[in-house]
Design a protein around this nucleic acid. Structure first.
Lengths: 201, 201
DNA sequence: GTAGATTATGTCAGTCCATGACAGATGACA
DNA sequence: TGTCATCTGTCATGGACTGACATAATCTAC
């Protein structure tokens, strides 16, 4: 990896960190692009060369996490039922974050705080999840061998499950990964309890 | 109702209609507030006294529809199980639109076209649905006598069901209310098939 | 119906997000 | 080292949105 590429990655991370800190400190709305750029010593124009919008920088960690999830999903064995594969991929993605660089974990949790505290960003996260859902649907349809209403329902149920699990973390003010994992498991268990056997086949 | 109030209502509707027509004709992004305001012969500043943002005017019909739905939900008998009440309220809301003023129906369908054609607005609709979900959750919790994870899950499942149903309308290019109703019924039937008996109690 | 209180509207100035164009700086590579 | 590709800063611009204040319309009481 050349110097240029390393510098770019460094700038990107610096922008995210500076932005998240400012958002947490003084709120998302009252933080300007100029402030973020100044904190990293780049021009405001450069900010927009790294992120398409102010919202994007706040959602960058979530976006990266989704990519990890999708990658894990593709690695799941084909024998697993669709929802099992989704749940396992989720567990794997969380585990990767838990055992990874502390800074990455820190950044991810900070980003979650910002998302929770800012309705605009929260809506943006939904937009992300929906865009992702399209790609998840492909995988579910592949495993079920049918791109129909039922595949859509399985996919939507997974999205809902994650959403409900994360919302509960917010309610209980859980900001650590272990707490998040527990809530997710509770919700997965509820799905198991309320769905008929083989519902996702 | 006084003259002042009537005039305000008229301006509001005129702004929505003008905006939707412009959005459909030349796209949401390339339509400016100035154009919308000019079409109704008001100042751009006045536009923002009626709608908080450009997005809001596109989502106004959806917002109104949600209010109708919530009102119907509160009128459902307490004997119905939570999900049944939700589904029935949805049917009632659609019926009201079908049997109501043709202009209202027209406006609603136009707004749906705009929502479907514009990713930004689509995300905004998700934001709306989530805000609404909070109020739906209250009703579900009341009926179940418990504000717990399961109530959240029932609520989230309903939201997902509606979302999947509407997405299918888009895919099949159904833009009439009857087609929409059919898709929704299909999805409700699927829920009935995949959930264990009494799942929403 | 007229005076005075309320409320809606228009005008103006300003902030901020976002983008295109171009020039200068910096790393890549022969 | 020189040339090329790419990154960055500067400048100018457009469009969303907001606050402040003046004007005009409606409402209310007499």
């Amino acid at each position: 990896m050349g110097l240029r590429e390393r510098k770019k990655l460094k700038t990107r991370v610096a922008l995210i960190d500076a932005a998240l800190d400012l958002f947490l400190e003084q709120g998302y709305e009252s933080t300007t692009i100029d402030q973020i750029a100044a904190a990293v010593d780049v021009s405001p124009r450069t900010f927009f060369r790294y992120f398409g919008s102010k919202e994007d920088v706040a959602l960058a960690p979530a976006t990266d996490a989704q990519d990890v999830f999708l990658s894990e999903l593709h690695d799941r064995p084909g024998t697993e039922s669709p929802f099992t594969a989704l749940a396992q991929a989720m567990r794997a993605a969380v585990a990767l974050l838990r055992d990874g660089e502390p800074e990455d974990k820190q950044r991810f949790l900070k980003a979650r705080q910002v998302v929770e505290a800012t309705p605009t960003i929260f809506a943006g996260q939904m937009r992300l999840m929906l865009a992702n859902e399209q790609r998840i649907l492909e995988e579910v349809a592949r495993r079920r061998g049918a791109d129909d209403l039922r595949s859509q329902f399985v996919t939507a149920t997974f999205t809902s499950t994650i959403r409900v699990g994360l919302e509960n973390c917010t309610l209980e003010e859980l900001s650590d990964l272990d707490g998040m994992t527990k809530r997710l498991e509770d919700t997965f268990a509820l799905v198991d309890e309320l769905m008929v056997a083989g519902w996702d086949r």
